[in-house]
């Protein structure tokens, strides 16, 4: 497992985390290339289904990054996203994949540093958890 490089999908809100990622870039901050950013118009756009599908297709971890509490561009999309993440966690625990592969995080557009730190922290956490248990089956399916 030493050479395990986790695949992380980060659903990033256009108004905060996605801009924060840009900011991290212009600040020349390093963050792991494991993180695959998917820009979304609001974290509230993300449904449980998107999180599950990402994992089903081989992601080892998923996080949703929305605006700081009270700062959502669409009023409360981030609150809704947090609830959906909580639902996904419960379901993932129920089926033995593990809810700790999924997180909700918040930041503002100016927090380049927080973006880079979050990306690093989550990558390390997932690395410690090991590969998503569905990966073996996926590899077999792809071979056949």
């Amino acid at each position: 497992m030493g050479d395990f490089e986790p695949v992380i999908v980060a659903f990033c809100c256009h108004y905060c985390a996605y801009t924060a990622a840009d900011m991290a870039g212009s600040m020349r901050l390093n963050y792991p290339s494991n993180v695959n950013i998917v820009r979304v118009p609001c974290s509230g756009k993300i449904d449980v289904k998107h999180i599950l599908r990402a994992l089903q297709n081989g992601a080892d971890g998923v996080y949703v990054a929305g605006c700081l509490e009270g700062d959502c561009h669409f009023k409360n999309g981030n609150v809704k996203a947090a609830r959906r993440v909580a639902y996904a966690k419960k379901l993932l625990d129920e089926i033995g994949i593990g809810g700790d592969r999924v997180e909700m995080v918040t930041m503002s557009a100016g927090m380049g540093e927080r973006f880079a730190r979050t990306a690093t922290d989550i990558t390390e956490k997932i690395r410690a958890l090991g590969p998503n248990p569905v990966k073996n089956a996926l590899a077999k399916k792809r071979q056949s």
């Binding site: 599950l52 994992l55 379901l91 089926i95 996926l138």
Partner: peptide, 21 residues
């Protein structure tokens, strides 16, 4: 439709974990 998608993904993942498809 949404819950169908969620259940579908959940069941498929649970069984993939058990080595089945």
């Amino acid at each position: 439709r949404k819950e169908v998608g969620i259940l579908s993904a959940g069941l498929q993942m649970a069984l993939m974990k058990e080595g089945k498809t």
